[in-house]
Each structure stands twice: as structure tokens, then as C-alpha cells.
């Protein structure tokens, strides 16, 4: 009789231990799932950061491209695009696609004339059909006409894909 009581008590204690261990492992599992989610989230944030930095880098490269920039000694070449260079730059970029892909990657670069006229010219186009991120950056620029010696108001639109 006494042996039976001890055996029952031991069974209850084993049951308790098993349930405590079970709860402990459940909590541990929840912890791991959460940790994995946080790691995944961090990786996504880092990837977003990289895409943003790449977008800024491409915008800067496009803005200081000698193929487009004003080159006269008397004009301030910062944020200035030579109107006569645009056509030639388009042709060069089309004929040397591989070289320019190394500079811009998957991107689209357009120049829009805002004042006085309103045409838009695409100088580089290598978009991605399926992408995770797409950033558009618009930078105001002066479009210098060296023949008429006039400055127009334009925009360089840079779309980057990743």
C-alpha cells in the first residue's frame, strides 16, 4: 500500500517536471522564432540602407558626369548641364552600354526641361522589370545653351532599381 502511494507521488512529480520542461522548451522555441524574425528584419533594413546609398551614389554620378556637365571656364559647372552635350551623351551611352552599366547599373536617367520649354529626354535606360526597391531622385539643374548663352531650368530625374 505504502509502495503504491510513493509510486503515485513519483508519477505526479515526473508529470510536473515534464510539464515544466515542456513550458520551458515552448518559451525557448518562441524566443528562437522571434530572434530569427528580428535577424530577418535587420537584414531587410540593411538591404534597404544599401539600396538607398546606391541610389544616392548613382544620383551623384549622374550629376557630375563630364559627358553632360557645363565645361566653360566662365560658367559654374555645379548643377549645370550643357544643352549641346545632351544629344551626344545619349548616343555615347547607347553605343557603350556595358561601360555605362558599370557606372549606373539598373537605372533610368531623364532630363526634363521645365523653363522655358517642356520636352523630356531619356539619356540612359536600363530598368529592372521585377524589382524590390525603386527610388526616384529629382535634382534641379541649369540647362545652359552655349549658342544663345542662356540658362534654362531643368530637372535630372534618376530612377534606381534593386
Amino acid at each position: 500500500m505504502r509502495k503504491r502511494i510513493f509510486s503515485r507521488k513519483a508519477q505526479i512529480q515526473i508529470g510536473e517536471t515534464i510539464s515544466v520542461i515542456f513550458v520551458f522548451f515552448i518559451l525557448l522555441l518562441i524566443g528562437f522564432v522571434f530572434y530569427a524574425k528580428v535577424l530577418k528584419g535587420n537584414a531587410a533594413i540593411e538591404s534597404d540602407e544599401m539600396a538607398q546609398l546606391r541610389s544616392v551614389e548613382i544620383a551623384q554620378r549622374a550629376m557630375f558626369l563630364p559627358e553632360l556637365q557645363c565645361s566653360s571656364d566662365v560658367t559654374d559647372s555645379k548643377n549645370c548641364i550643357d544643352k549641346l552635350k545632351i544629344e551626344s551623351a545619349k548616343d555615347i551611352m547607347r553605343s557603350k552600354e556595358v561601360e555605362y552599366f558599370d557606372i549606373f547599373g539598373f537605372a533610368k536617367i531623364k532630363i526634363a526641361h521645365i523653363y522655358p520649354s517642356n520636352p523630356e529626354e531619356e539619356i540612359y535606360s536600363r530598368p529592372l522589370s521585377e524589382f524590390k526597391n525603386k527610388f526616384s531622385t529629382n535634382v534641379p539643374v541649369s540647362i545652359y545653351d552655349p549658342v544663345a548663352r542662356e540658362y534654362g531650368f531643368g530637372l535630372v530625374s534618376i530612377e534606381t532599381y534593386s
Binding site: 546609398l53 531622385t137 535634382v139 534641379p140 541649369s142
Partner: peptide, 23 residues
């Protein structure tokens, strides 16, 4: 937001400088 700070910094100064230079 690296891009946002770059864009807003560049935009305000670029707009004003380009506008005043326009013929």
C-alpha cells in the same frame, strides 16, 4: 533615411540656385 536627407538638402539649395540663374 540617407536618401531623404540627401534629397531634401540638395533640393532646397538646387532649386534656389538654379531658379535665380535662369534666363
Amino acid at each position: 533615411e540617407y536618401r531623404k536627407s540627401f534629397v531634401s538638402a540638395e533640393l532646397a539649395s538646387g532649386m534656389i540656385n538654379t531658379l535665380l540663374k535662369t534666363t
